[in-house]
Each structure stands twice: as structure tokens, then as C-alpha cells.
């Protein structure tokens, strides 16, 4: 048996040695390889692009708050105009909670035609003399997301027929300028246009928790009023 193995082994070595050495790359091989490499490079680049775009989209949809992806560039909506401050009636619905005021701000379309609100909201705190006060404004999630409800149709654009209302989640803590009646000026972050000037009522202003700690407002994007 081992003789046969040895014979076969020797035969294969002898036969293998009959092959001439390869001292240079045949031109025909170079010719065939070039388009193959080019084609593969194109395929790899295209695949990488598709995978990257898909991964980014997937990552955003899984991990990013929905408003982050859509509020930056709200879709253009043909139809109703953006609601102006003159056609909106703003009101607060706040409750005291652990030294804060928590609830929502409502925007009712008091005009004669439909209009839209969309995106994030900024707040500027002023007084009757238009002096502004330092307040830290943080953006928060919309209520539907916090409540794990379905995304409202059309969101982040909220279309208000006459009489309809939109809202934003709102919480405010630590207001220590007790000598001032603050006015909340709400603006759309996208355009900076003012949508409401709300003179705070006594129940809207949070208590002073610490003079040196600053006042903080958290406000969500526009969403249909529930």
C-alpha cells in the first residue's frame, strides 16, 4: 500500500516538474484582468453607496427621534399658507409640577381659511417693555411620540382648518424675576416668524427654585391638538 502511495507521490512530482516556469505575466492575462478589476471596482462602489444610504436611513428610522430627520427640512406642502400671528389665538394649558409648569400651548386658527404650522418652535421671553431675559430653551419630543401614539397624518406639517387647533408640549422651570410679568414670544424655528405672544398668567409662571440656576423651557414641535 505504501509502495503505491510513494509511487503516486513520485509520479505527481515528476509530472509536475514537466510544467515550464512562469517568469512573466502573460499579456493576455493583463488584458483580461484590467476590465475585471474595473468592473468589480464599479460594483463595489455602487454597492457601498447603496449600503451606506440604506444604513443611514435605517439608523435614523430606528434610533433618531423622528422630528430630527423631518423637521430640519419639512416637506414642502402646496396648499394652505403658513399661519400668521394675526390669525392664531394662543393659550396655555399648564399645571404645576415639582417646581415647574408643565402642559401645552394651544394655537387655534381663528382666521377664515386653512393654514399650516410645522417644525420646531423657539421661545423668547420678554417683558412689556420688550426687554428680553435669558432663558435656556431645549427642544423636546412631540406628545404623540412620548405617548407612543401613531404619527399624525401629515406631520410635521399641521394643517389647521378654521377653528382647528395645534399644540406644542411645554414645560418651564425656575423663573426668579418675580417683579416681571413675562411674555412668551413663540417663533417657528425654520423661518423665525412669530406665531404667538402670550402674556403669562399667574398659573403659567414657575416658581423660583434658585437664583443662580437659570430659567429653562422645554418645548416640542407643532402637532395636532388632541
Amino acid at each position: 500500500m505504501n509502495d503505491m502511495h510513494d509511487e503516486v507521490r513520485q509520479l505527481l512530482r515528476d509530472k509536475a516538474s514537466e510544467m515550464p516556469p512562469h517568469l512573466d505575466v502573460p499579456p493576455s492575462l493583463r488584458k483580461r484582468v484590467r476590465p475585471r478589476i474595473a468592473r468589480n471596482a464599479v460594483l463595489v462602489a455602487a454597492t457601498a453607496a447603496v449600503v451606506t444610504v440604506g444604513a443611514i436611513a435605517g439608523f435614523r428610522s430606528l434610533n433618531g427621534p423622528p422630528e430630527e430627520q423631518s423637521l430640519t427640512n419639512p416637506p414642502t406642502v402646496a396648499g394652505p399658507a403658513v399661519c400668521g400671528v394675526e390669525q392664531l389665538e394662543a393659550s396655555t394649558a399648564l399645571e404645576g409640577a415639582a417646581g415647574s409648569r408643565v402642559g401645552s400651548i394651544l394655537f387655534r386658527n381663528a382666521g377664515g381659511g386653512a393654514c399650516t404650522l410645522s417644525g420646531k418652535v423657539d421661545v423668547v421671553v420678554t417683558d412689556s417693555a420688550s426687554r428680553s431675559y435669558d432663558v435656556t430653551v431645549d427642544q423636546s419630543d412631540p406628545g404623540w411620540l412620548v405617548d407612543r401614539a401613531a404619527k399624525p397624518e401629515g406631520w410635521p406639517v399641521v394643517t389647521l382648518a378654521p377653528g382647528d387647533s395645534a399644540s406644542v408640549r411645554f414645560s418651564w422651570s425656575n423663573w426668579c424675576r418675580t417683579d416681571v410679568t413675562p411674555i412668551l414670544q413663540l417663533q417657528t424655528r425654520e423661518t423665525g416668524s412669530v406665531v404667538a405672544n402670550i402674556t403669562s398668567g399667574p398659573n403659567d409662571v414657575p416658581p423660583c427654585n434658585g437664583m443662580g440656576e437659570g430659567s429653562t423651557i422645554q418645548i416640542g414641535p407643532f402637532e395636532p391638538s388632541q
Binding site: 505527481l12 509530472k15 509536475a16 516538474s17 514537466e18 510544467m19 512562469h22 512573466d24 505575466v25 492575462l29
Partner: peptide, 15 residues
């Protein structure tokens, strides 16, 4: 790679 491995590959293919 060709110069390194072509001889061995050719022998194997021949066998």
C-alpha cells in the same frame, strides 16, 4: 502574486 504562485498553480492544474 502571479510570479509567486503561477508555477505551483500550473503544476497543480496539470496534475
Amino acid at each position: 502574486l502571479y510570479l509567486r504562485y503561477a508555477d505551483g498553480a500550473a503544476r497543480l492544474a496539470y496534475l
